[in-house]
């Protein structure tokens, strides 16, 4: 068995140090060692997007990275988006307002992806939204509420940062 390797990863602004086997995925590290169980695993082969997190600000599939690769990086999971316990991030608020979730399992990955997508494209058309979020799969909503939520969040974020 391969030797465990020490890593230090900043997860939602807190430094997490751990010893990891090289094969441990970043997703499993975040779930089991950083206890960010909002990082969901729904395919483990990089298609569904449920495990999406921000790594140094970029949306990535955490099931396709090994924890050792994240050594020294900054990770934001869905748990790290809301500013405080009373307030939701505008994307989270929009998902709630627009019924962008039912079972909620794909939701954390979607919310991270939508936040990153809107950062790159703050004023998307509906068609751009549909293709922009096509890297995340949902089985409950038919994407109807998710597209609406992305639209609402875009407007809210534009207002926040004119």
């Amino acid at each position: 068995m391969a030797d465990a390797i020490p890593v230090s990863v900043t997860v939602n602004n807190r430094t997490r140090r751990g010893l990891v086997e090289p094969r441990l995925t970043l997703a499993d590290f975040l779930r089991e060692q950083a206890l960010c169980t909002g990082v969901h695993l729904a395919c483990e082969h990089g298609v569904c997007g449920s495990c999406t997190v921000l790594m140094d600000g970029e949306a990535v599939r955490s099931c396709l990275l090994f924890a050792v690769q994240a050594d020294g990086s900054r990770i934001t999971t869905v748990e790290g988006l809301a500013p405080d316990e009373q307030t939701l991030h505008p994307v989270q608020e929009a998902f709630r307002d627009c019924h962008g979730l039912q079972c909620g399992f794909c939701t954390p990955g979607f919310i991270i992806s939508v936040a990153a997508f809107l950062e790159a494209n703050p004023n998307p058309t509906d068609d751009e939204i549909r293709h922009g979020i096509a890297g995340n799969l949902c089985r409950c909503t038919g994407y109807q509420g998710i597209v609406a939520a992305t639209r609402q969040a875009a407007a809210a974020l534009r207002e926040e940062q004119p």
Binding site: M1, A2, I5, P22, R23, D28, E44, H45
Partner: peptide, 11 residues
């Protein structure tokens, strides 16, 4: 669905 063990090198 978890990978088999390997040695990791980061040149």
């Amino acid at each position: 669905m978890k990978p088999a063990p390997f040695q990791y090198h980061a040149p």
